[in-house]
Amino acid sequence: MIDFGFILATLCPMVQGPNMLIQVDGQNRRPWAVGSRKVILDAATEEIALKGFRYARIGDIADRAKMTPGSIYTWFKNKEVLFRVALEEALDAQLAANIANLSKIEDLKNTPWLLKIAALLPRNNADNQPTAAQVMLIEGYYVSWRGKAKEKTFLPRLEQHFASYQKVIDDAVASGEINSDIDPQLIAMLLLAIPTGLALLQFSGLPRVPDSSWVPVYQAFATMLSPKK
């Protein structure tokens, strides 16, 4: 027998009572309020993409989200925290989108470590427009470079992102898929720098090379890194 009560409770947590709370960002929240968090993060990403972190104001983000600045501060302590969470959400969304798209590319499945790297790459949307991950990563690097006071806020998350690349390469070296004579950290840096640099070039107005054109390039790179027989 179908448990409609369970289904309803799962799809609509509010039926469990008006006093129900859920944990979001380490704080107790009403389930019905969670939607406003995404609206704020989307507005922050759009505003930062338009003006950069330095000139993006909480007031303008609130206007874009059709909320009050006070509503934003109930979710995020300050602009730095808002940026960091927006970056994390953007990277998670990019990873999910990449995994869905890569499942359709047969050519990469013969090289497991390369497939894992491809899942991490910040790449454009289907409409060829930059993704939030590209925008926030570029801005995160810039802010950490130019604003040393902000470095403690953003650099740990950027280092965590790079560590994901590093782990894939370290595992591939350990399993014998990549030549151990080549510095694995350098390989990870190159694989992160290529898509990040391409995104920056596109932001500057240069033409973008389609993702499909990069598949044989990465395959050639993987062949070059393979252990010598």
Rank of each mutant, 00 (worst) to 15 (best):
P227G: 15
W113K: 02
A193D: 02
T223M: 14
L41F: 07
E47V: 02
Q166E: 08
I187W: 03
N179A: 12
Q134W: 11
M136Q: 09
N19S: 13
L158P: 00
M14A: 13
R57A: 10
E47L: 11
I187K: 04
S164I: 01
I169K: 03
L91Y: 01
R29L: 00
L192R: 05
L186I: 13
L91N: 03
Q202H: 12
S164C: 04
A199V: 05
I22H: 01
S36R: 13
K229F: 14
V209P: 05
P130Q: 06
L201Q: 13
Y142Q: 06
Q94W: 01
A44H: 02
F203L: 04
N128C: 12
A62R: 01
P18G: 06
Q16V: 07
Q134N: 08
E88K: 01
K66E: 12
K116L: 10
T223F: 07
K109P: 01
K152N: 07
L201H: 02
M189K: 08
L87T: 08
A174F: 11
R30L: 14
D127T: 12
I105G: 09
K38L: 14
L82C: 05
L11M: 14
V85W: 02
V85H: 03
R57Q: 08
D60T: 04
P13M: 01
L186F: 15
P69D: 07
R37F: 13
R208K: 10
L192I: 03
R37P: 09
Q185V: 06
A44W: 07
N101I: 05
A100T: 14
A119D: 11
Q219K: 15
D107C: 09
T10H: 13
N101Q: 14
L87V: 12
K148V: 00
S103H: 09
L21I: 09
V173S: 07
W145I: 09
A90P: 06
I22G: 03
A86F: 05
I7L: 15
S212K: 15
E89H: 10
S226K: 13
Q160G: 02
A97F: 05
L41H: 04
M20T: 15
T131L: 06
I194Y: 09
E80D: 14
V217Q: 14
N28F: 12
R84H: 01
R146S: 09
L191V: 09
E46D: 04
N28M: 13
K152C: 03
F154D: 00
A62M: 13
G70K: 15
W214Q: 07
L115Y: 12
T223I: 00
P210H: 02
N19C: 11
L137D: 11
N125T: 05
F154G: 00
E47S: 12
S180T: 15
I99V: 12
R84T: 00
P195G: 07
I169Y: 01
K77T: 14
A33W: 14
R29K: 08
K229P: 13
K116N: 10
K104D: 08
A199N: 08
Y55W: 13
L120C: 09
I40R: 12
R84Y: 01
I194L: 06
L192H: 03
A86D: 02
C12K: 07
Q160S: 05
I72V: 13
L186P: 03
I178V: 15
